[in-house]
Amino acid sequence: MNEPSSTEKKLIPISVVALDIALPESPTGAMIRTLGLVSAICGLIIVGAYQGTYDAVAANKRIAAERAVFRVLPKAKTIAEFFAQPGGGIAKVGAGDTAIPPGAVKFFAAYDDAGKLAGIAAEGVGKGYADNVRIMFGYQPDCQCVVGIGVVAMRETPGIGDKIITDKDFLANFTALDLRLKADLSMLANEVKAVKHGSKTAAWQIDAIAGATITSRAVGKAINDSAQALLPRLLPHLEKLKTS
């Protein structure tokens, strides 16, 4: 057939188009069904896992925080978590409905056997050689000084930067590191700073580890920044913390 009639010419395409539309079932319904089912199952699993592990996770977190605080304040037996509000004043974390406002500084108050304040522990962050160095330091209100530090997290070079937790001479800096405030309690009287190995002259200076100056400096900056932010807000309200 060389010359098909005009009617045939028109008919063939129309029937093909009609077939095309009819053949594949639109998957929209199936897609919604499947995704809905998957979401429901997955939601159930996640909620189940969350509920099942909630208590254990909370207990773990508390134990980890206690351990970190006890390391820097050896006399402590119990802890309570507080935060210092940006405008001044302190409040207990989790007490009542007080949400932690942005800019607040969290800290721990630690108490000894008799329920007396054994010291205050706070976290600080400084830029180290490889990554941020996060440390926890113990603060003694009686002498207004740092009495111990511990590392929360760091990625410093093993064997060089991580000497900050093993080097005895370096840790000796933190038996009575001066954190006194100015008379008007607005800021630290002397900035805490790491100085070159062997050139420490004042109680607020940190004698850096030779060869690990950057990490030592990070520790100094971490303590300084955290203390600058926390202590001026905390000290006026110290009485509130005296007993647990």
């Binding site: 499947t34 995704l35 998957v38 979401s39 199952i41 997955c42 699993i45 996640i46 189940g48 896992a49 969350y50 099942g52 592990t53 254990a56 996770v57 773990n60 977190k61 134990i63 980890a64």
Partner: peptide, 22 residues
């Protein structure tokens, strides 16, 4: 679907590891 399913079990594992050891 695969990603949602995988992510679900990863979240569950995430909680489980937190519960086992921080």
């Amino acid at each position: 679907v695969y990603i949602v399913i995988i992510a679900t079990f990863v979240t569950a594992v995430d909680y489980a590891i937190q519960a086992i050891s921080l």
